[in-house]
Amino acid sequence: MSRALAIEIDRAEGALLRLLGTIERRGFALIGLQTDAADNGGLSVRLLLDGERDPQVLCRQLQRLIDVREVRLLPDAVEETPETFQATWLQG
């Protein structure tokens, strides 16, 4: 089942690698990825993930990474696809 996450991280060496590595190692496949500059030297990352494990647990696993500022699990009322993911991203 796919879930969308909105994450803000510090723009530090390895921050994005660590984030993506944790996601894959914890059993989720990455099917969509968008990044953009955020305020205060941060990086805004929007992800679409596929996985059978509890996404709430993944959020806590990401939250404990030192470079991660905020993790939001986006509502799953509508099942996201790569197309809708792309569309909502472009709408900001």
């Binding site: 060496e13 390895g14 690698l17 660590r18 590595g21 190692r25 990474l65 030192i66 470079d67």
Partner: peptide
Amino acid sequence: FGMSLPVVKHSYVVRRAEDVYATVREAFAI
């Protein structure tokens, strides 16, 4: 740095001498 990513709580490459002291202090705190 890359090899150890999955087995560290956090890690740094220190690229400026002025960052060394602060990085070590931060590393201990983490």
